[in-house]
Design a protein around this nucleic acid. Structure first.
Lengths: 152, 152
DNA sequence: CTTGAAAAGAACTGCCT
DNA sequence: AGGCAGTTCTTTTCAAG
């Protein structure tokens, strides 16, 4: 586990708010020089605290207006079954996230589609044909709010 | 909806892979000049196709080793109930994502905690005391794979 | 749409306290 | 660890084909 001081936490808060702002801006906000701020940011990357930056796409504007969460229960659950399922599901382009979870369902999938009929195609042709699939539960996303989450 | 040509899609693919690479690198990979690539990237931002960049934090290394998905069913579901719930849940720092969904549950929450006992504290003190909360289902995250998703 | 050049700014490096 | 000065690289704008 990585230990951060107060300054590092403030830097992370700023970067979570806007990952594109330069080290000089961060420094000015915290009363640090540009190199000092830059060195700390670099250290946050090197230590693995920051894994990288992800592009935030507007899938709706790109023609994918439907997002559905699928809870998937496997019929058979050996190690091979899990591997097979994960390999097969990773080949479906409409699947954005594959989450292996503990609970009523074994996997949670985030799936995007152009519209409901496009989603039906993905569900019938792609999801239901995955190896070992048992029960499937679907939840349509209405709206979503992402928050910074706790830091330190 | 935004129309993209093949080149724009290739640029998005590259940026999804690594959002930090400069326009010159993108251009070289696609056989475009640096200003041409830069202009296209800029256009993708201006058109709203790219909403921005998000910092990808390693919460595990930052001391938050437990991620739990909560399905929440509201006991009462008027407009005021939804607003009240969303406002209250947004004030909990451990909640990373609030998803309003259609299905068996009304909301899906992504919650991070330091460990299981810390999660129990969040669940009992924060989640179960939210206004209008009915049934709650929990799923512990074992592993997660994020994929680029469909582009165009 | 492209190239090339130039200016502005950010990232990175050494050296110093 | 932080600051200062200087170098390198990217971004951004401009002129022109």
């Amino acid at each position: 586990m990585i230990a951060l001081d107060t300054t590092d936490r403030l830097i992370l808060r700023e970067l979570v708010r806007d990952a594109t702002q330069p080290a000089s801006t961060i420094g000015r906000k915290l009363g640090l020089s540009q190199p000092a701020a830059w060195r700390r940011i670099r250290r946050l990357y090197d230590s693995g605290a920051i894994k990288g930056q992800r592009l935030d796409l507007d899938h709706e504007r790109l023609g994918f207006g439907v997002t559905v969460f699928l809870g998937v229960k496997l019929a058979t659950k050996g190690r091979v079954s899990l591997d097979d399922f994960e390999r097969a599901v990773s080949a479906i382009p409409e699947v954005q996230t594959v989450e292996h979870i503990l609970g009523l369902y074994d996997y949670r999938l985030r799936v995007v589609a152009r519209d409901i009929s496009d989603f039906e195609r993905v569900l019938r042709r792609r999801i239901m044909t995955l190896p070992g699939v048992g029960d499937v539960e679907a939840n349509v996303l209405l709206s979503e709010e992402r928050r910074p989450g706790p830091i330190g």
